[in-house]
Simulated assay, not measured.
Amino acid sequence: MSLRFSHRSLSQQVLFGSGQAAEHLAAEVARLGAQRVMVIASPRERRLAERVCARIDVTVWHDGVAEHVPVHVAERGRAVAAERAADLLVSVGGGSTTGLAKAVALTTGLPIVAVPTTYAGSEATNVWGMTEDATKTTGVDDRVLPGTVIYDAELTLSLPVPLSVASGLNGLAHCVDSMWAPRADPINRALAAEGIRALATGLPRVITDPAGLPGREHALYGAYLAAVAFASAGSGLHHKICHVLGGTFDLPHAETHATVLPYVLAYNAPFAPGAAARIAQALGRPADPDEPRAAAEAAVAGLSELRARLGAPTALRDYGLAAEDIPDAVARVLRAAPPSNPRPVSEENLTALLTAAWSGATPSVDPDIPAAPLVPATEAR
Rank of each mutant, 00 (worst) to 15 (best):
M38P: 03
A26R: 12
H239D: 00
A254N: 07
G94N: 07
S122F: 00
R332Q: 11
I369E: 01
A153W: 04
K136I: 14
G320M: 07
P214A: 13
T138M: 11
S364V: 06
P363F: 00
V161R: 07
F5V: 08
F230H: 03
L3F: 03
G236M: 00
R55V: 08
H218W: 13
A280M: 05
D325N: 12
G302K: 03
T108S: 15
G33I: 10
G171N: 05
E297C: 06
L3S: 13
G311S: 08
A21G: 14
E75G: 13
R8Q: 15
P370L: 02
R189D: 15
A337R: 10
R285W: 04
A254P: 00
M1A: 15
A272F: 03
R332C: 06
T351K: 02
G109Y: 13
T256D: 07
A223L: 12
V260R: 05
G33D: 12
A329G: 14
A166H: 02
T355S: 14
A258L: 15
S235T: 14
P262Q: 04
S42P: 09
A82E: 09
L265Y: 01
L350N: 02
V144K: 01
G77V: 10
A266F: 12
M130I: 14
S340E: 12
V228H: 08
S122K: 00
A200D: 08
H218I: 04
A166E: 00
D57H: 10
S9T: 15
T355Q: 10
A134F: 07
V244W: 11
G234W: 05
R143P: 10
A21P: 14
H243V: 13
E348H: 15
